[in-house]
Design a protein around this nucleic acid. Sequence first.
DNA 1: CGCCTTATCGACAATGATTATCAATTGCAG
DNA 2: CTGCAATTGATAATCATTGTCGATAAGGCG
Lengths: 138, 138
Amino acid sequence: MNAADAPRPRMTRQRREILDALDLSEFRSAQAWHERLRSEGSTIGLATVYRALQSLAESGEVDAVVAESGETLYRRCEAGEEHHHHLRCRVCGKAVEIDVPDFEAFAAAIGREHGYGDILHTIELTGVCPECAARAGA
Amino acid sequence: MNAADAPRPRMTRQRREILDALDLSEFRSAQAWHERLRSEGSTIGLATVYRALQSLAESGEVDAVVAESGETLYRRCEAGEEHHHHLRCRVCGKAVEIDVPDFEAFAAAIGREHGYGDILHTIELTGVCPECAARAGA
DNA sequence: CGCCTTATCGACAATGATTATCAATTGCAG
DNA sequence: CTGCAATTGATAATCATTGTCGATAAGGCG
Ligand SMILES: [Zn+2]
Ligand SMILES: [Zn+2]
Ligand SMILES: [Zn+2]
Ligand SMILES: [Zn+2]
């Protein structure tokens, strides 16, 4: 509707720290990111981490997924823009981005077929990555 | 692994009430089902509703989905057994069951391709049903 | 039909993730 | 440099869900 929606947030020390930390390519909860930052010496507050991650998720700079437990997991989004989905390790959080050919069109078609509009979709694959499988199989 | 996993739960008044209430074909949270039951005159406890819904979900008698907010929604499952997915109205909760042809195979293939094992998948479509769209468009 | 064992209840406390408060800071426009 | 609104962070408040535990009652048995 309105493209002038983004009142660019201020570049604070905290925001910079979060952006840096997010280089790691693993899905982690807000609390987990906070712990990591503190363990690296940061004094950033938990609430700030929550706020930043939410704002970044809204603006599409990070991916957010809701785990089965209900907690929200975040990680830096590789493809700056395009819509995509993930295959994530349930154990260590490592994830790869996948594409699901034709699914966008399929979703829209299903919606139309049932008279539903404004369709959103969620596709998440989870599994156990090779490393974690090996460690567990020991 | 073990087929003798189900120590058939006792048929209590509370369980009956829940099973009855679930006839409605809408996704509702545990708390919402509890409220409805109480409003119908039941004296059932909240914890009991949570326990029953979870147990029913595990045994596959009800569908459970995790909403974006993180809360878990339940409803009676129409297809007694088979694996399937839903298109749910974000406003009123009304849902239809859909099937995503070949997705099971696709998911397994993606997993194999990346070395991930024990793949699970989530597909949920949400939209706005015709009634709710009309009401909103008013 | 009564009895007894034990699953199930339910009121209430406890947890854990997320959000709201609000005074103290601090980007940053002017 | 100034001034002020945006941002921070310690902490309290929410909210969904789970744990506790004495009371209750399903249901197998005699
Ligand atoms: Zn892993
Ligand atoms: Zn998609
Ligand atoms: Zn279903
Ligand atoms: Zn609707």
